[in-house]
Simulated assay, not measured.
Amino acid sequence: MKEFSTGRAPEPGEKIAFVCGAFDLFHVGHIDFLEKCYSMATYVIIGIHSDQIVNWYRGYNYPIMTMFERVLSVLACRYVSNVVIDAPFKISEQLMKHLKVDYVIHGVRTPVKPCPDGSDPYSEAKRLGLYREVDSGNDMTAYSVIERIIKNRVKFEERNKSKEQKELDRMQST
């Protein structure tokens, strides 16, 4: 696990939030969610899961973006102060103490997947009273972005086939 920062350390008394996930295909839904997190805590640390962990809980074809791309996308967001690369799936008390977090935040629109042993990855944060859920107010997901790309690709291919056929028909008629 490595930390990668924007260079600003939390100031004394500042509320610190920890949020973890894939953050694949960074989109406006992520931004809306992180803005809500930032309204609760002005220093937001994002834990980016490894490709292996994302592949386990999202499926074989995920993540779409590399770890490097996901980290840079998240760091470009104005509501993010720091990134933890290769964050663990289960959040331990030790990690929360190390990061000095006041809140561990999860989005309500993303179901919590249990750990491989069946336990809740947020159990320690809940036990310590640090767990919070936030609703981004936005339905966009990486899945919906992918569906849109696939749908538009088919339309684009059909349009090009139609144009090609019209050109062939013109060439044959002359």
Score class of each variant (00 low, 15 high):
Thr6Asn: 13
Thr6Lys: 15
Gly7Gln: 12
Gly7Asp: 13
Glu11His: 03
Glu11Asp: 04
Gly13Asn: 03
Gly13Val: 02
Lys15Thr: 13
Ile16Leu: 03
Cys20Leu: 06
Ala22Lys: 05
Leu25Val: 01
Phe26Tyr: 14
Val28Thr: 13
Gly29Arg: 04
Gly29Cys: 04
His30Met: 03
His30Arg: 03
Ile31Thr: 15
Asp32Arg: 14
Glu35Asp: 11
Glu35His: 10
Cys37Asp: 01
Cys37Lys: 00
Ser39Tyr: 01
Met40Gln: 15
Met40Ile: 15
Ala41Tyr: 13
Thr42Met: 09
Thr42Pro: 08
Tyr43Val: 06
Tyr43Ser: 06
Val44Arg: 03
Val44Ala: 09
Gly47Ile: 05
Gly47Trp: 07
Ser50Gln: 00
Ser50His: 00
Asp51Lys: 01
Arg58Thr: 06
Tyr60Ile: 05
Tyr60His: 08
Tyr62Gln: 14
Pro63Thr: 06
Pro63Asn: 12
Ile64Pro: 12
Ile64Ser: 11
Thr66Met: 02
Met67His: 07
Met67Ser: 15
Phe68Met: 09
Arg70Glu: 04
Val71Phe: 08
Val71Lys: 11
Val71Pro: 07
Ser73Phe: 11
Val74Asp: 01
Val74Met: 00
Leu75Cys: 00
Leu75His: 00
Tyr79Asn: 08
Val80His: 11
Ser81Trp: 09
Ser81Ile: 03
Ile85Glu: 04
Asp86Val: 02
Asp86Arg: 06
Ala87Met: 09
Ala87Glu: 08
Lys90His: 10
Lys90Leu: 10
Lys90Tyr: 13
Glu93Cys: 09
Glu93Met: 08
Glu93Asp: 12
Gln94Cys: 00
Gln94Glu: 13
Met96Leu: 08
Lys97Gly: 02
His98Asn: 14
His98Tyr: 12
Leu99Asn: 00
Lys100Trp: 00
Val101Cys: 00
Tyr103Ser: 03
Tyr103Lys: 03
Tyr103Trp: 09
Val104Gly: 05
Val104Ala: 02
Ile105Gly: 03
His106Asp: 11
Gly107Asp: 03
Gly107Ile: 04
Thr110Met: 07
Pro111Arg: 14
Pro111Phe: 05
Pro111Trp: 04
Lys113Phe: 08
Pro114Arg: 09
Cys115Met: 14
Cys115Phe: 10
Pro121His: 10
Glu124Asp: 11
Arg127Met: 05
Leu130Ser: 04
Tyr131Gln: 09
Arg132Asn: 10
Arg132Phe: 04
Glu133Ser: 12
Glu133Thr: 15
Val134Met: 08
Val134Trp: 04
Ser136Ile: 12
Ser136Lys: 11
Thr141Phe: 08
Thr141Trp: 10
Ser144Glu: 11
Val145Asp: 01
Glu147Leu: 12
Arg148Gln: 14
Ile150Asn: 14
Lys151Asp: 11
Arg153Ala: 10
Lys155Gly: 00
Phe156Thr: 12
Phe156Gly: 01
Glu157Gln: 13
Glu158Ser: 14
Glu158Thr: 11
Arg159Val: 10
Asn160Gln: 10
Lys161Leu: 15
Ser162Tyr: 11
Ser162Val: 08
Lys163Pro: 02
Glu164Arg: 08
Glu164Met: 09
Gln165Asp: 10
Gln165Glu: 14
Lys166Arg: 13
Lys166Val: 00
Lys166Asp: 06
Lys166Thr: 01
Glu167Gln: 14
Leu168Asn: 12
Asp169Val: 03
Gln172Cys: 04
Thr174Tyr: 10
